[in-house]
């Protein structure tokens, strides 16, 4: 069933964000965004047992100039865009306080925007803009889309100034994945700390993993595999990719 939530309702739900934004001092290049991820069944019968069906997860996105930190549970990834536009990735394993460094690679703008904004501009702009409104200092846009063939419905509330997802809901065949912005962090010290604490982790070059069979952390990683989904882009509370299918 197509689920439509009005712009008015959404703006009410995220009013706390508006308060934070009213200072009008937020900078899209220096912020932290905490999200709550919820997976749930949306049909009436299952909803009675929502506690059994829902999955919650906290995630956060941090930006500090040309650096982006994506935190997903105890795994996180830092991306740094070099002056020559190469992007260097470092995967962090917070529980072990260890990091794996990857070689800097060239990256498309779409891919960089997906990391930095969770959704590239080209993808967002292909969605149907169903409303736009200034709230405080910032323009908020509501996008909606549906794909009847795959029984998929989606809506995105977007902060156009901060280039930040406020709310994202994708419903398909009774399953709903929902991203909800819980808090925006403006404190530069807190933001810097999020990056700095991971810089102190012991690092291993990806190419050296095979030569370090005696390292307990690397053995675990070799046997279990490295971070997969959830390091960038939009994924659900189980770490699975959330495909934004839609009709053009």
């Amino acid at each position: 069933m197509k689920s439509i939530i009005s712009l008015t309702l959404m703006f009410t739900v995220v009013s706390f964000v508006t308060k934070a934004e009213q200072a009008c001092q937020m900078n899209e290049d220096l912020l932290g965004a905490h999200y709550k991820l919820v997976n749930s069944q949306v049909n009436a019968v299952k909803r009675k047992h929502a506690n059994e069906q829902e999955t919650f997860k906290l995630s956060s996105l941090w930006r500090m100039n040309q650096k982006v930190l994506s935190v997903n549970g105890d795994q996180s990834t830092t991306w740094f865009k070099l002056s020559n536009d190469l992007v260097q990735k470092t995967a962090h394993f917070d529980h072990f306080q260890r990091s794996i460094e990857y070689q800097a690679k060239s990256m498309s703008n779409d891919r960089w925007q997906q990391i930095r904004q969770l959704i590239p501009n080209s993808k967002r702009q292909s969605l149907r803009l169903s409303g736009s409104k200034f709230k405080g200092c910032y323009q908020q846009e509501l996008y909606q889309w549906e794909n009847e063939a795959s029984n998929l419905h989606g809506k995105l509330l977007w902060n156009a100034n901060l280039k930040l997802i406020i709310e994202l809901t994708i419903t398909q065949r009774g399953r709903q994945n929902h991203w909800q912005l819980e808090e925006i962090v403006q404190d530069a010290k807190v933001i810097a700390l999020a990056f700095a604490k991971r810089e102190k982790y012991q690092t291993t070059d990806f190419a050296d993993i095979g030569d370090n069979e005696s390292d307990p952390f690397l053995i675990k990683m070799i046997n279990l595999g490295f971070i997969k989904h959830g390091s960038s882009g939009i994924y659900n509370a189980k770490g699975e990719n959330m495909a934004i299918e839609h009709n053009h």
Binding site: Q66, K67, F80, L82, L86, Q88, T90, E101, Q103, A104, E199, T203
Partner: peptide, 9 residues
């Protein structure tokens, strides 16, 4: 030739 934010470790 740096390929990360801080080349040195």
């Amino acid at each position: 030739d740096a390929e990360s934010e801080k080349e040195g470790d």
